[in-house]
Design a protein around this nucleic acid. Structure first.
Lengths: 146, 146
DNA sequence: ATAATGCCTACAAAACCTATAGGAATAGTA
DNA sequence: TACTATTCCTATAGGTTTTGTAGGCATTAT
């Protein structure tokens, strides 16, 4: 299992904010209730640096969050990477991972590189707006999914 | 990170066995040394039921393992699922997961279903023999990887 | 007999996941 | 000013999973 609640909750939160922000701000309380997610847990997730950069916040009464850019300017991949740190299927492909001394010989490495590419291509080919619109997503083959 | 050492080690082990089994058996000791993996840890991994079904073992001196079927009869996806249990990117798509009461409304679910499909299509489109042959793998787009 | 192997069970440190808790700072509103 | 609703910050913690280590029994070839 690759995407933890962090990634899943952030995606749902951003979609919820995108859907409910009019001219104003969406409070975590409201999003948490609608999405049935612990508000306290969400609080911790939105302060992940790369996540908070995607949002504009306002404290105090009637405060909350709104997207810093339009929903069609964020890909699902971007959002998930912000929350999860990395979407690499294996540790050895992660940024900041100490170079594996076996990488030159590793017979399995090309499998992981291809998998990484397939995953990122799929997730980066889809924006938040696409998800809201329930736009069919290219599934990487000849078929459309959703 | 989706594929743990269990999956990565099993894939390397099976590839190592496929490469070194002639008419005989390949001992874990030899594979472990070649692959620089703890032999004791490998012992525990090969007794995972779905993994052990892919192997034929022989105890005693000159014993070891060989593949139960030919290397071109096992897909990488099969091998990884045997070791990891599931390759689902999110918990809610796993077999035996209690049905999520929100699934009918969940705006994010189609994203995960598409991702699951892309991942499994890639990994099931590649056999152990393909990896040994370093055969280019279809990366789900217009490009070949490896 | 001996040695090399698989097979089995138990233990455990470390990391990660999934939160909960309390309170400070901020900003509207009466 | 007082009140309320919100974000923001830090600490704590139980549970699960990962990644092994350790010891010994069973099996088989020589």
């Amino acid at each position: 299992m690759m995407i933890s609640t962090r990634g899943r909750y952030v995606l749902r939160l951003l979609l919820d904010i995108a859907e409910h922000q009019g001219e104003g701000y969406v409070s975590l309380k409201d999003s948490a209730e609608r999405q049935e997610i612990s508000k306290k847990y969400l609080e911790q997730i939105v302060i992940i640096p790369d996540v908070s950069k995607m949002l504009v916040s306002k404290g105090g009464k009637n405060g909350g969050y709104r997207l810093a850019k339009d929903a069609d300017e964020y890909t699902v991949g971007e959002v998930l990477r912000a929350a999860e740190g990395s979407l690499s299927p294996v540790a050895c492909l992660e940024i900041n991972h100490s170079p594996c001394p076996r990488s030159a010989d590793c017979i399995a490495l090309p499998v992981w590189k291809g998998l990484d590419e397939v995953i990122n291509k799929y997730l980066d080919g889809m924006t938040l707006q696409d998800v809201l619109d329930k736009k069919p997503g290219y599934d990487g083959g000849d078929n459309y999914v959703i």
